[in-house]
Design a protein around this nucleic acid. Sequence first.
DNA 1: CTCAAAAATGAAAACGATTTTCAATTTCAA
DNA 2: TTGAAATTGAAAATCGTTTTCATTTTTGAG
Lengths: 144, 144
Amino acid sequence: MSSNAYSWLEQLQIHGYRLTEARRAVVETMVGSSRALTPLEVYETARRRYPALGLVSVYRTLEVLSELHLVQRVHQEDGCNAYLPRAEGHQHLLICERCGRAEYFQGDDLEALFIQLGQQYGYQIRAHWLQISGLCPKCSAQGL
Amino acid sequence: MSSNAYSWLEQLQIHGYRLTEARRAVVETMVGSSRALTPLEVYETARRRYPALGLVSVYRTLEVLSELHLVQRVHQEDGCNAYLPRAEGHQHLLICERCGRAEYFQGDDLEALFIQLGQQYGYQIRAHWLQISGLCPKCSAQGL
DNA sequence: CTCAAAAATGAAAACGATTTTCAATTTCAA
DNA sequence: TTGAAATTGAAAATCGTTTTCATTTTTGAG
């Protein structure tokens, strides 16, 4: 549904953002990525399509895409500056710590736990974050 | 068990680290904290006990404590540079995004899910991370 | 289509957190 | 007690990110 460049650009437009070459290039890079990408990686990839792109615009566009819930930041031991298309609904992430490859898995039953915990501790739950990391089959085969 | 300054210092010693005033000050600050603390906050707190302490030593000590699994980094929307005593066993974190207060809750049943997912996707699971955030009762009462 | 206001851009400078360097100090085992 | 090795704090360097600002691009009204 929201997993194609057209709808991402549409979302930008709906929220009053202009469609620019810089944004198109970043969107095209992020929308189909199955790997977590750092701003610098997005920059390098997107510049192949739009060489005039500035790194600053990558940062700014990623920020906007985050606000619109189209991408999300990925947290890992070695850094928290990579981005992926946002997991939808009750999905969570399984990420390869070597190559950044991501799988999205369903975790509906976890929502109940979160709600229960909120009540138990008197917390007003705002967000939850579940992420599993390890080596994908390919990286696993190559050895560490 | 590992939740007192004595055993943390013992762990440092066992692993060949020397016991210094700087490390004692950082350990004393971290070991009993129920709030996530940034390196700067650790520095400011620990300096009350040992004014000669340098910020650099805080960074270095936190790194060592992380390696020894005595503290862990906390990931939040607004930054990933705060630390807490490490959750033990199958515990996970419930954190107040306003004041950093942390609750540790048990999540044994989640381990089974992680193992199952690893098999399903062919991943060699190395780590998992579950964290819930929101407002603690106190911060919730104060309004946003 | 034209045009002007507003939004967005890229380059450079500024920034803040973290790391490195290094000479001086501290620890600890012999 | 002593000396080698580890550790320290201060300063400088580094890295990712943000801000500033003059210029360019987008878009909607005419």
